[in-house]
Design a protein around this nucleic acid. Structure first.
Lengths: 196, 196
DNA sequence: AACTGACCAAAATTTCAATCCGGTCATTCG
DNA sequence: CGAATGACCGGATTGAAATTTTGGTCAGTT
């Protein structure tokens, strides 16, 4: 219903062109003129569909966020134990993230020049992941696999911990193998550190 | 032995002056000229004791790191349970950090303009904390309170987790009280999340 | 009616002279 | 005579003006 079919769907052309440009040059260096060139469309036409550059960007982040969620959802199998699902899903998300050029480019842009809009985009993606984890945590609590303290905080801790283990640790040490990371992560979250 | 006593100890004068200036204006805005003025000393005299501005700064970070360690050491009582000590010590360190003007100023400078030398200083302080935690973790393992996986990684995870809980969480949510944070932190690390 | 690109004001970038700063060293002081 | 000093140097930084770029508009074209 949203997408009527025409000889050529200009809106889709534009979104695709913008997507490429944002991934290739980042938010700041992507100009509306450039997008119009790639889309083979007059600059004015873009403004028929999107009121501002930010709105166009937002549409693309929205699509990407949805895609991210689908990746995560696809790796979850509610018949398996909670912690297996969790570290599997986080691993898939991390791979996706590392491979997806737009995300890589935006992260770099945030790091190097701190473009506020790029920050915003990354934050939205992270927020989406957080919401997903929280949903799974709540499910795990319902199923009785998980102790039921504050699911929001728990989801937050899980994400931070996973990122620390898989990204930050390797900044100063030999990176953990996928197996080591998942093992340590799962063990710590499941059973804690105390000798019992 | 290192500090001979003279009518006035110029070296100490200089270090104190520099310390004040770094805390007041940050690394970048502290000029050698300014330090010499505060220390009531000719600029050239500074170079009798420190070859470069960086070396002077390094000396001060070294002192501060030692001070930090003393604060942590003072709150540890090896007769108490490991996790009590841990969250107590981390809390003390956080308070110290928040109160210490030099650390606050340097953090701000890193955030706002990313001065490499300031980054470096903060990194060294964090490294010191990490080494301290690691030592305590090893001790906890020896005493049989802690499961004995990779102490370095464990220390790293503990610090990240504590910082996430006490600093990052509050960027987007109502901050946790000291009690909530310590409670959640201790419980998660000690016992994990799984229902048993 | 859909589309275009020349056009505009605001923002970003470049340029470049003026200033500043870390570090040196010939001179001074005690 | 040796410790201390501050004028001095060149490279880096800053600020402001000039120039270019860019998000967004809209009169004109198809």
């Amino acid at each position: 219903m949203a997408a009527a079919k025409k000889p050529v769907d200009r809106r889709a052309q534009i979104v695709e062109a913008a997507s490429k440009s944002f991934a290739m040059f980042g938010y700041k260096a992507t100009t509306m003129e450039l997008v119009s060139k790639i889309a083979a469309v007059g600059k004015g036409t873009i403004y028929t569909f999107f009121a501002t550059k930010e709105e166009l960007f937002s549409e693309i982040i929205g699509q990407l966020s949805k895609e991210l969620r689908e990746v995560a959802e696809r790796t979850i199998d509610h018949d398996r134990p909670f912690f297996d699902n969790l570290s599997e899903a986080l691993h898939e998300l991390l791979l996706f993230r590392e491979k997806h050029e737009l995300i890589v480019k935006l992260s770099q842009e945030v790091r190097d020049i701190g473009t506020p809009m790029a920050k915003d985009g990354i934050a939205r993606l992270e927020q989406g992941i957080l919401a997903f984890i929280q949903q799974e945590v709540s499910y795990g609590i319902d199923k009785g696999e998980l102790r039921g303290a504050n699911p929001q905080l728990t989801a937050f801790v899980m994400l931070r911990l996973y990122l620390a283990l898989s990204l930050e640790w390797s900044k100063q040490h030999k990176p953990l193998s996928r197996k080591e990371a998942a093992g340590y992560f799962g063990e710590l979250l499941r059973d804690g550190l105390a000798v019992r």
